[in-house]
Design a protein around this nucleic acid. Structure first.
Lengths: 145, 145
DNA sequence: TATTGTTATACTCTATAACTATA
DNA sequence: TATAGTTATAGAGTATAACAATA
């Protein structure tokens, strides 16, 4: 493992942090549905990948506290985007799963986000975009560690 | 420019968005000083790069509204991290600049952030980290577009 | 006794609208 | 009349603490 406190590794860390913070702030303004927060979107994305999850699992994956996830899941349920069922083995837990409506919304969301990012990416050249595209899965892995 | 609505470009966009949101949430918990928010940190970083700036310039660079920047600058001033001076040519404006204390804090901050990210990056292999390091400046450029 | 999830409450950050001072 | 910055206020999202139900 490289020494992350030296030279260009340190510069990369610094650039990464400030860029992530600025981008996250701007992404908030690019909501598909005005009534859907970034974390709600992220939960739907997680459910699309994982199928089902308990509220506790979702809280851990999204790095929010359990009470926050309770609220998020309740909001998503009220919007008809997730369904809650009793856990088959443990009556304390619940199982959260996405609805067809959520799936349709994710498709629409993807189209709109791409349109927004495509505009932004016009300021990059091919080589820069290639670097970013290569790094995207790594960034995602990092966010899940 | 590639078609960002198709194939692996679309996947990169999606991965990028969700990773940025998750990481930004986790970064909030890795504050150097508990009393310093991510945006306050980012403003100090900007001042370190640009030297001086007016509140309006900072608001535009950080993508927050002017009243939010007023508050942020006031908090930083109260903590002795920035100094405010009258604008030499326009008496409506002010000039914001960092103090020595801010500079020292940024050094300390860099050390701690690196330590935290180094821990996280242990879950990546050399090749993955190389990709991320290459992309970091691009991500930063994107955030400034 | 430990764990899952919820309820109640408070805090942080940001935004919008209205205002002041200067250009 | 337009612009830079501020004040006042409200809203969104999250956290902590205390609680209920189940393991």
């Amino acid at each position: 493992m490289p020494d992350l406190t030296q030279g260009e590794d340190a510069a990369a860390v610094s650039a990464l942090r400030s860029a992530v913070m600025r981008l996250s702030r701007r992404l908030k303004h690019q909501r598909v549905d005005e009534s859907l927060s970034p974390t709600e979107m992220s939960v739907l994305g997680t459910l699309a990948r994982c199928g089902t999850a308990t509220p506790g699992e979702l809280a851990r994956k999204e790095h929010v506290q359990p009470p926050s996830m309770t609220r998020i899941v309740a909001l998503l349920e009220a919007k008809g985007l997730v369904r809650l069922e009793p856990h088959p083995e443990d009556r304390r837990q619940k199982v959260v799963m996405q609805t067809e409506r959520a799936e349709a919304m994710l498709d629409e969301s993807r189209r709109r986000r791409n349109a927004w990012l495509a505009e932004l990416v016009k300021g990059l050249d091919e080589e820069e975009w290639a670097k970013l595209r290569d790094a995207a899965p790594v960034l995602e892995k990092l966010a899940h560690l």
